[in-house]
Design a protein around this nucleic acid. Structure first.
Ligand code: MN
Ligand code: MN
Ligand code: ZN
Ligand code: ZN
Lengths: 160, 160
DNA sequence: CTTGATAATGATAATCATTATCAATAAGGA
DNA sequence: TCCTTATTGATAATGATTATCATTATCAAG
């Protein structure tokens, strides 16, 4: 499993070519940005990050690339309720594991959690199988989020 | 439990007053619209429905009322990925039960399901409790959605 | 290593859902 | 009934995302 070992093409180049897409500087830069962080970046966040090294890459290209990446299933697109979409590498063979999210409805902090993921996944698989059969629905993905107040915000709220 | 039995104020009037809000025709009309359907209406859908009986109620009022209703937890607000928010009565004491959603990523059909809800809820409760403790996070709500292709769309896709 | 077809880009304008303004109206306690 | 003020609605503004279109760059073929 080839990873960024300093030389040679990055592992995702093959992915691109395999899907009939060209591999370009902007796409490379955008994936690298997502790969370097564990945050949940918006299109503009990515644009600004990429802009530091490549000031001529446009926001439009960021949006278009994100769409391609999502359709290739290399990234996930989330709506956490703050009015803009946020993106996260689906990581394939990187260090990140599949996880779900806690979303603070006050400050919009996002917490990744992997605890209990195994039991969740187990139940999800059963549920997916049964739902697929019952509704003739081909499930390809799921979304689980918990909403509430993060530690900081619940303290603030209590203080009022 | 007072319901729409033809006379007397509807059950939600008290809810409104109890939260310090006035009870108005637009708010009444908007809740009634949501109560009459099992669909997942957008703000504009609601505006158009309400507009038939009350042509002078504006879209702005619909948005504002939906915000109040959501904050009162009388409705849920969803993002199914079609670029507009969709709303659903939280049902309190009506016929609808708590349910989760299947979302067709091709035609945007939404399927409510209640199957396995019990096992899901059971696991969710455990998970919520453990996550609350671990992250000091006050969980007040959860979101579960499965994405994929509905029966019709998977047939169409296969045919291509 | 060129070349050429065309996928990809980027500057710009357009879209469209949602919000902000603000004067006019109406709910409901006194 | 009266008065305070929450609510409304017409309108403009906002802001994220998408469409256009001329220009550029990728990469398969020669
Ligand atoms: Mn995450
Ligand atoms: Mn539903
Ligand atoms: Zn918070
Ligand atoms: Zn479908």
């Amino acid at each position: 499993m080839p990873r960024g070992d300093g030389k040679g093409p990055p592992w995702w180049k093959g992915k691109f070519r395999g899907c009939g897409h060209r591999f370009t500087i902007p796409r490379q830069a955008i994936i690298e940005t997502l790969d370097k962080t564990s945050a949940h970046l918006s299109a503009e966040d990515i644009y600004l990050a990429v802009h530091k090294r490549y000031p001529n890459i446009g926001l439009t290209t960021v949006y278009r690339t994100l769409e391609v990446l999502a359709q290739m299933r290399l990234i996930f697109k989330f709506d956490f309720g703050d009015g803009r979409s946020r993106y996260e590498l689906a990581h394939s063979d990187s260090k990140k594991e599949h996880h779900h999210h806690l979303v603070c409805t006050n400050c919009n902090r996002i917490i990744d959690y992997t605890d209990f993921i195994n039991k969740e996944i187990e139940l999800l698989n059963k549920t997916e199988k049964a739902l697929s059969k019952k509704f003739n629905f081909k499930i390809s993905n799921h979304l689980i989020q918990f909403y509430g107040l993060c530690e900081k915000c619940s303290k603030l709220t209590a203080r009022q």
